[in-house]
């Protein structure tokens, strides 16, 4: 294991050096995450008869399987940084984000954060039966804003999301939105607040080109406001446009951590092999 956790290329010396001007916002220290999956059973073992037999005989369900998703990851993120997370499917990127957000317990190691990281994922559903405007108000209140702030910000958020560009969608229930529109609204809500740490999981993938440009500008503003942004994406273009540092995860381990260009080049080489 000791050999595996070493990055292949030691390019991170330039980025992760402890510089006294730089203030860390996230410290991830040798983190291991293990999922215990219930009901991951062989065909036929989930029938009523077997469930009953298990209860009668008092044995524990044999269907709990362990999945070691993150196997000892360490890095430090600083204020004003935008960090891209890349890696093939199932490499532990989303798991790592959930762990940083405090939504998954670590099995070993620790995650330290400044303030409360906010996770913006594709599944961050608000209330689908309510209008976009009401969802904006609710989302803002849930982020701890006051009623006056919410009133002031609601039109700005609706404008930014651009949902009214294709008709007066702001007053229609969210269930009538296309997936792209809903994703744009969710991003607009989350981006309305200053976050110490914003974790974005593929949430920008569904927007169109115009919205992507606008959201990249918004991310720049967020970083200048002394925040740290994490971006998980399979779109290398988004990563290179937004992040100057990139972490490449493979099979739950950091394979490389350094300037985006170097990491992305190595990653693309690896993927085309």
């Amino acid at each position: 294991m000791a050999k595996q956790t070493e990055p292949i290329a030691d390019v991170n010396a330039t980025t992760s050096a402890v510089d006294h001007q730089r203030i860390p916002t996230i410290v991830v220290d040798d983190v291991h995450v293990i999922y215990r999956v219930h009901g991951a059973s062989a065909p036929g073992s989930a029938s009523m008869v077997t469930s009953l037999r298990r209860i009668v005989s008092g044995t524990r369900s044999p269907n709990i399987r362990e999945v070691h998703a993150v196997k000892g990851v360490s890095f430090t993120a600083y204020r004003g940084e935008a960090i891209g997370l890349i890696g093939s499917n199932g490499s532990g990127k989303s798991t790592l984000l959930l762990t940083i957000a405090g939504l998954l317990p670590v099995d070993r190691g620790a995650v330290y954060t400044a303030g409360q990281p906010s996770l913006l994922g594709v599944n961050a559903a608000l209330l689908n039966d309510l209008s976009g405007e009401r969802n904006v108000a609710l989302g803002c209140l849930a982020m701890g804003m006051s009623r006056a702030e919410v009133r002031k910000l609601t039109p700005e958020i609706i404008d930014f999301s651009g949902i009214n560009e294709s008709g007066e969608f702001g007053s229609l229930p969210m269930r009538t939105y296309s997936s792209g529109m809903a994703a744009r609204l969710r991003f607009a809500i989350a981006a309305a607040k200053k976050h110490d740490v914003l974790l974005i999981d593929e949430a920008l993938a569904t927007g169109d080109a115009r919205f992507r440009r606008r959201s990249e500008e918004r991310l720049h503003e967020l970083r200048e406001g002394a925040g740290t942004v994490f971006l998980v994406s399979h779109s290398i273009g988004t990563i290179t446009d937004t992040c100057e540092r990139t972490i490449w995860l493979e099979a739950g381990l950091i394979r490389m951590d350094g300037p985006t260009q170097a990491v992305v080049t190595a990653y693309e080489e690896y993927m085309t092999k």
């Binding site: 992760s16 050096a17 402890v18 410290v27 360490s74």
Partner: peptide, 18 residues
């Protein structure tokens, strides 16, 4: 030892830094 290798410039342990 390996964590020290992957962070060659940090004199502090992650816990102390945090």
């Amino acid at each position: 030892t390996d964590t020290a290798v992957s962070r060659p410039d940090s004199a502090q342990s992650p816990t102390a830094l945090a």
